[in-house]
């Protein structure tokens, strides 16, 4: 069964600009579907970017999500095992897929 919850406090990035005192980029609690494989998503994807970056793509095909995972590995050098890459792709397609393989 799908459970929807908000992930709390990953990291807060404190910032300081020309304004007085310390300021922070706010943490946005993006809605996350806690499906099978979310642990791998958390470990491999959310180290570098927010979940909003993912869901903004909308519901997509399996090939689309596979392409995104590959892009992260090939171009952005995400240190991800082949096994985790498969699990993350499955999670994305299961929770944010459009039902089409291509």
């Amino acid at each position: 069964m799908k459970k929807i919850l908000l992930i709390a406090a990953l990291t807060m990035a404190p910032l300081f600009a020309q304004v007085e005192g310390d300021i922070e980029v706010p943490y946005i609690p993006f809605e996350v579907k806690m499906g099978k494989g979310f642990g791998e998503v958390n470990a491999n994807c959310l180290t570098c970017h927010s979940f909003g970056y993912v869901t903004n793509q909308g519901r997509q095909s399996k090939a689309f999500w596979r392409g995104k995972v590959d892009k992260m590995i090939v171009h952005f050098k995400a240190p991800m095992t082949d096994k985790d890459a498969d699990i993350v792709t499955e999670y994305l397609f299961e929770e944010y897929g459009n039902g089409k393989l291509k």
Binding site: T11, A17, I28, C48, S50, Y53
Partner: peptide, 14 residues
């Protein structure tokens, strides 16, 4: 709202 910004359409924080 983000620092020095009024609330905007927000896609990502990181």
């Amino acid at each position: 709202a983000f620092p020095e910004k009024r609330p905007m359409i927000t896609y990502s924080d990181r």
